[in-house]
Amino acid sequence: MVLQIGNSKFTVNGASTTLDSPPVIKNGRTLVPIRAIIEALGGTVGWDGTARKATVTLGSTTIELWIGKNAAKVNGVSKPIDSTNAKVVPEIINGRTMLPLRFVSENLGCSVVWAAATKTITITYQP
């Protein structure tokens, strides 16, 4: 899967698809509208508007993230989203829930490669 900062189109196994909002960089980290990405990987995303919590599930892993909080739960265990930058938190941008891409992807067992020259992110997932 290949995404590019500021571009709402991304590819999955070479096929082009569209995000409802493009990836952005905030506090030095990439935030994305995660639903289309997780569903492309075969997972599910839930939203609790009262708790302002997103729940991402792929395979046997469940990640819970709260808007504005710099810690998340992975299979019930609390983890910092970014141990070197406490400002990295899930946010609502233009009405879309945007989650930190690397934290979510790596905790689901994906590899993430950033290419600074082209501002592209390549995610590889082997179930």
Rank of each mutant, 00 (worst) to 15 (best):
V56N: 12
T124L: 14
A36E: 13
V88H: 03
I37N: 01
T61I: 15
I123N: 09
G95V: 02
D82F: 06
S105K: 03
T122A: 13
K87P: 00
Q126Y: 14
S16D: 04
I121P: 06
L101G: 05
S21L: 10
T62S: 15
A71H: 08
T57N: 14
W47S: 15
V56W: 10
A116V: 06
D48F: 09
R35H: 04
G109Q: 10
A117K: 13
I123C: 09
K69R: 13
Y125M: 11
T57R: 15
K9H: 09
P22L: 08
N27H: 14
S78Y: 05
I5P: 01
I92C: 06
T120N: 13
N7S: 12
I123S: 11
R52T: 04
E106S: 07
R29C: 09
G76L: 05
S8W: 04
F103T: 01
P33G: 09
T50W: 05
G59C: 14
A51Q: 15
A51N: 15
A51M: 14
N85G: 08
N7V: 14
T84F: 05
K53G: 08
V32L: 04
T55E: 11
D82Y: 01
G95F: 00
A51S: 14
A51K: 15
A36V: 06
T50I: 10
G68H: 03
S21W: 02
T44Y: 07
T97P: 00
V32T: 00
W114E: 10
I92M: 09
V24W: 03
N85W: 05
G68T: 03
V74L: 05
G49K: 11
M1W: 07
V2F: 13
I25T: 09
R102L: 04
I5Q: 12
V56E: 09
C110T: 02
G95E: 01
V89M: 08
T97F: 04
V45T: 00
K79Q: 11
S60D: 14
S8K: 14
N75G: 08
G95Q: 00
V24D: 01
I37D: 02
R96V: 02
A72Q: 07
N70K: 14
S8Q: 13
R35A: 07
T30V: 13
P90C: 08
W66L: 09
L19Y: 02
V24P: 00
I67C: 06
A15T: 09
V32F: 03
N75P: 08
V74W: 01
N7P: 06
T122I: 11
R96P: 00
L108R: 01
G49W: 11
A54W: 01
R102Q: 04
F103V: 05
A15I: 04
E106K: 11
Q126K: 15
I5K: 08
V113K: 11
R96K: 14
W47K: 14
L108T: 00
P33D: 05
G6T: 00
T120R: 15
A71Q: 09
K73Q: 12
A115S: 14
D82I: 02
V12R: 10
E91R: 11
P33N: 07
L108S: 01
T17K: 03
T18H: 06
P127T: 08
G109V: 04
P90N: 07
T18R: 09
P127I: 10
N107F: 00
N70I: 12
A40R: 02
R102K: 10
L3I: 15
E64M: 12
S111L: 04
E91T: 11
L19R: 03
S21V: 03
